[in-house]
Structure formats: C-alpha cells, structure tokens
Amino acid sequence: MKETAPAVCLQNVSAGYSKITALENINLNIEAGSFTGIIGPNGGGKTTLLKVMLGLLEPWTGQVRIFGQDPQENRRLVGYVPQATNINRQFPISVREVVSMGRLAGKSLFFHRYSTIDNDMINHCLTRLDVLDLAERQIGQLSSGQWQRVLIARALAVEPVLLLLDEPTSGLDANASSMVYELLQELNREITIIMVTHDTLAISAYVRDIACINHHLHYHGEPDISSELIMQLYGCPVDLIAHGVPHRVLEQHGGQP
C-alpha cells in the first residue's frame, strides 16, 4: 500500500539554518522505483534537501511526505549515505561495527546485543559491498573507495526501500565510481534511489531522472538538460555540456515502467 504513494513528496517546502534560507518553495514528487540524481552548484541546498527528506531538518514551511507519511514515522524505510568526508575517520571503530549501526533502528538499546538475524544481515551487506575481508579493520585504514562502500553497506543494513546518497563518488577514481554506480543500478531494481552527484558520467549513464537544485527546484525530469538550464543553474556552461550530456539517448530508458 505504501508503495503506491510517491517515495518522496515535497509541497511548498522552504528550509534553512537560523538566518540562511537554503531551499525555497520546493515542489517535488519522486516516484517509488526511480533512480534520481540531484545536481546543482555547491551551496545550492542539495544536502539540505536530503536532510529534509530524512527528517533531520524540520522545514520552515510546507509538507514532507515519505511514502505518504511523516519522515519521522518512516525512519526504518530510509537508508542514508552521508558525504564520506563528514565523518571522523580517526574514530576507533571497525568496519563491522559501523555497518552494525544500521541494525540499531527500533531496538531496545539497554544491554543491546545483535541477534543472529542482525549478524546475518550485517555479513550479507559486507559481502554485497565487497568489504567482508576488511570487516575488522579500523575505518581510518581504508581507501576512499572502500570507505564509501562501507557507508553504503551501513545504509543497506537498515533494509531500506529508499536510499539517499550524498555525493557517493566524490574523491573516487573512475573505476571505483563505476563500481558504485553499477551496484546502485542493481539495487534500484528493488529500491528507490536518490543521489546527490556532480558526476556527469552518472547523470549520462545511470540516473533515470534528475532534479536541479539551486535554492529553487529548477528542473525535474529526464536528464535531457539544455545548456540554457545549466547556465541558469551553475552560471556558466560547465563540464556537463563538455561531456555531452545533451547527446544522451533517452529512448534507451523510454520503456521503463
């Protein structure tokens, strides 16, 4: 039943931090099952948009619905992959412990122990992201690609139906990036994915919809963005055009349900 409601529905949402307005009057519907890329300039409000969807930030005005419900009610449906650089990697914690965190939602935490089901799920996620052999390592001793995969594994341990990722490939080389995208594409068969990205490769080859955010929502639809829009969004024709995004053959995905 929940699946019939849009995965994300924002109506007239404005949000920000004390005096800074980051988002203004956003109306956005993201269908369940979609793979949406959020693009926009630095400081445009992309991370803020994810925070609003996660219920981490109360919007000033407007309404946020995740599968038709308040984000606070729906926490266990949503997996979050924060920007990898936001986390202190000196912290004394192992890969396995980080991924295990994903299993804590909705549990009684007084004398908490992970159940067999939890441990199976944790191993499953570690395996799926190909970090099982790194499980006992301290997180500072990983490459950025491995660390990124650990964060995705943690989000998947929640068993989400909606996955929100904040720049999951920044700082990764082309190979590692493609690996992440291939995985996301595979995951997208089962779950809805919303990903903030600057990567034109992702936009041209993997993402099915894009939303352009700079304070306002400038565009939401198929990634057939005109150079005019890019100008409006970034203020200059950046590498989106240089990489030939407009040439993308949209018909490839035309038959998607």
Binding site: V78, N86, M101, L104, F110, H112
Partner: peptide
C-alpha cells in the same frame, strides 16, 4: 556497559543515529 551501542553510535555519528531515530 548497558548502553554501549547507543553511546558508540552517539560518539561516532550523531547524524546517522538521528536518521535511525536513536
């Protein structure tokens, strides 16, 4: 001892813990 996982989650990543509703 009794709240070790909660404390660890708080110390390590408060934001993610909040998304879980901890």
């Amino acid at each position: 001892f009794s709240f070790f996982h909660l404390l660890q989650a708080y110390l390590f990543d408060e934001e993610f813990s909040n998304t879980l509703g901890l």
